[in-house]
């Protein structure tokens, strides 16, 4: 479990995460939603030690993230940020293999290579394995990054808008993959989503942020309602049902 207590982050005199306390990732898939600028990426960045914490604490399975060696955390938690730019020329397979770095320090053994193969196959990257990252399309590159993070084989997987750039099939594939990973392997996936319907269909728990504060947290059934969506996104939404889950219609 990830315990967040009184977490704050300030830039100058604007507070972008304001005294947030919550427990994350009890359940399989936790979706973080909220409007642009709500602080979702900042929250993820602080949880994963990539951004400094101004006040408050984060504990992962009881480990204080500011006091735990980075390498230990790397075997517990993997994060993929919203914007990624690797400017060096790496092949897809090399990138994914570096997901094993916390375990093998760059000298992958047979087991590591097996993980790499599995991650490549999961993300449909077999044919692209030898290609350089800078020759891939945006969505292909995004899949390579996700493969690397999965290869890290951590209990907690944090993904900041991983469906960016993906076509519908690959977006659904990734959500289903996350669902399988959480159900079959007990992984806890925390995922920032903009499409609330993906959250409604796949999340076990939804966290909504607004202006740096926790707006609400709970099961999709309780959260995806016309009132709450109006309050969060200021948009009128019709809620229908699809395969036993609520679905918001807001396109027109």
């Amino acid at each position: 479990m990830i315990e967040i207590r009184n977490l704050s982050k300030r830039y100058g005199d604007s507070t972008v995460i304001d005294n947030v306390s919550l427990d994350l990732a009890d359940a399989g898939i936790t979706a973080i939603i909220g409007p642009n600028g709500a602080g979702k990426s900042t929250l993820l960045g602080m949880i994963s030690r990539l951004q400094s914490i101004d006040a408050g604490t984060v504990h992962i399975d009881g480990l204080d993230i500011t006091a735990t060696p980075s390498m230990t955390l790397a075997r517990k938690l993997a994060i993929l940020r919203q914007e990624n730019q690797i400017s060096t020329r790496l092949r897809v397979i090399d990138l994914v293999t570096f997901g094993r770095y916390p375990y093998c320090k760059g000298r992958p053994g047979p087991e590591d290579l097996e993980q790499v193969q599995r991650a490549l196959a999961f993300l449909n990257l077999d044919d692209l394995a030898q290609r350089f990252l800078d020759t891939l399309s945006g969505g292909q590159r995004q899949r390579a990054y996700i493969a690397m993070v999965l290869c890290q084989d951590t209990d907690y997987v944090l993904l900041d808008e991983p469906l960016n750039n993906l076509d519908m099939k690959h977006a659904v594939d990734i959500m289903q993959l996350m669902q399988r990973a959480s159900q079959a392997m007990g992984k806890k996936v925390i995922i920032v989503l903009h499409d609330i319907n993906f959250a409604a269909c796949y999340a076990d728990d939804i966290v909504a942020l607004q202006n740096g504060k926790l707006a609400f947290q709970g099961h999709p059934e309780a959260l995806i309602t016309a009132d709450k969506m109006k309050a969060l996104y200021d948009i009128d939404m019709t809620i229908e049902r699809f395969k036993g889950r609520p679905i918001g219609l807001y396109y027109a």
Partner: peptide, 13 residues
């Protein structure tokens, strides 16, 4: 790994 940038490198420990 460092050439992949600060975030990737830190994520990998």
């Amino acid at each position: 790994v460092a050439g992949m940038g600060r975030d990737f490198a830190t994520n990998l420990g």
